[in-house]
Simulated scan of single mutants.
Amino acid sequence: MDFKKTKYGRFMNKRVSSDKRYQPTEYEHAANCATHALWIIPSIVGSSLLYFLSDDQWETITAWIYGFGLSGLFTMSTVFHTVSWKKSHLRTVEQLFHMCDRIVIYYFIAASYAPWLNLRELGPWAWHMRWMVWILACVGTVYVFFFHERYKIVELISYTATAIFPALVILSMHDRDGLFELAVGGVFYSLGMVFFRSDGLIPFAHAIWHVFVAMGAGIHYYAIWRYLYTPETSQMKTSR
């Protein structure tokens, strides 16, 4: 561990026990802020594009839901990491934003599924999953409220279950367009989770996790834009 401190002192601090929160270095704090702040404006612009491409009220509502989830993720993450970096006597505020940062991930997952559950013809469970995915997000919120940072493995499993369970319905799509992009985006999220738990083992681990999240979100956004909101897709849906 001394070797790590000597070699990576500016870029990584000592790993902490599972019941404590890792304290990033100044460089890691800056990277954590930048890697998600960079995507706030693009996420807002991209969400607005979906809104203007909407052909009916249901598409408009879905664009708003997805847009709030996408931009909310990057915004809350940036706010939390900024407060964490610049804190002085703001321990309570930092803790609050950390909880919000964890909670918004659940709603981002639910919002990411909304376009597929609302706009694509799915199997018989689709209607139930439209509200069940939000119940999962609410359950995650309650968990964070009562058990924040206590059981990190349970937290990781909870995020994974929330992300995978609705996918079982998505696989029932009669129209398979977009399924490849959904799978690729899921792979990026899954690979990023390796870094999510690697603070103190890999320099800039959390910032790398942020990059994987941004890439996964970008691929999923492309699939939603390309297969659910483009004029060509709208014409195909109208002709059916």
Score class of each variant (00 low, 15 high):
P166G: 03
R10Y: 11
A207C: 09
L73W: 02
K87Q: 15
I41D: 08
A110M: 07
E181V: 07
Y107V: 01
K87R: 15
P42H: 04
Y189P: 04
R240L: 14
L156N: 09
A161D: 01
S88E: 09
V139H: 01
L73T: 05
V79A: 04
K152L: 05
M129L: 11
L228P: 06
A163T: 10
Y51M: 14
R120E: 06
M193A: 12
Y113D: 00
T160K: 08
I208C: 04
F147H: 15
V83L: 14
D55K: 11
V213K: 00
E149S: 14
F145M: 13
R197S: 06
E59C: 03
W85E: 07
S88T: 13
F195E: 02
S48H: 13
A37L: 14
S172L: 00
H210D: 09
I164N: 05
Y8W: 12
E232W: 10
D56Y: 03
F146A: 12
Y229R: 13
W64I: 12
W127I: 14
R10F: 09
Y229H: 10
F97S: 07
R10K: 15
T60Y: 01
V79F: 02
I41E: 06
K14P: 04
C33N: 10
R102A: 04
V139M: 06
I109P: 01
E94P: 03
Y66H: 05
I157K: 09
T60Q: 02
L156P: 03
Y221Q: 08
M129T: 08
I109H: 00
A34F: 10
Y51D: 01
W116H: 11
C138F: 14
S234V: 14
G185W: 02
P115D: 02
Y66F: 11
I40M: 06
E232R: 12
D199L: 04
Y8R: 06
A110Q: 07
G123S: 04
P24Q: 07
T62C: 05
F165S: 09
D19R: 07
G186L: 05
Y27K: 15
N32F: 01
V194T: 09
A30H: 10
Q23N: 13
A163R: 05
V142S: 05
Y189Q: 04
R15H: 10
W125N: 08
M173E: 10
S158K: 07
A37T: 12
K20P: 08
W131D: 06
P166E: 01
P203L: 04
I170D: 02
D177S: 15
A217T: 15
L182M: 12
A137Q: 06
V211I: 13
A34H: 09
Y106G: 02
Y22Q: 09
T92C: 07
Y159V: 00
W125F: 11
L228F: 02
Y221P: 08
Y27Q: 15
